[in-house]
Amino acid sequence: MIARLVLNGRPREVEVRPNQTLLELLRDTLGIFDVKEGCDEGVCGVCTVLLDGRPVSSCLVLAAGLRGRAVVTLRGLERNGGLHPLQEAFVRHGAVQCGFCTPGMLLTTLAFLEREPRPDREAIRAALEGNLCRCTGYTKIVDAVEAYVRGELGHD
């Protein structure tokens, strides 16, 4: 059957199996490896994509049910070939170690900041609670998000 979606701004129609998830569609069918697979039950957050602007676990979405909705993966953030300023903040603040959680962290953060542009550290922590990281202990991730928020406000 056919799954319809708008992937990183481009309308796509892709042949899928009824039991195929959005994660499997992205990784196995389309070879989009910026979405990771970590737990297959929506807990870890490494397969996060934005669906109509909101974060979802792509492992818990059936591809067949997409109905033309907008899906954004990490590569959807690219700005004229350069890094998105949040990506730059992650690099500069040492928020990346093994990097496996990073794509999901970035997408979750951006969706959150759309709705709450000036969060404090506690709010940032609460917003990222669904994205596990086993390497950094989160401090530098929160540092990076905070720095990005400050930069947007012209204080950085």
């Binding site: 697979e37 890094l83 992650f90 690099v91 990346v96 093994c98 990097g99």
Partner: peptide, 23 residues
């Protein structure tokens, strides 16, 4: 010096090919 790690740049754009990112 707290230099930026080369692998961090690759990882924020998900260019790093982990073991499962291979076909």
């Amino acid at each position: 010096q707290p230099v930026v790690r080369h692998d961090a740049r690759d990882k924020v754009v998900a260019a790093t090919a982990y073991a499962a990112d291979w076909a």
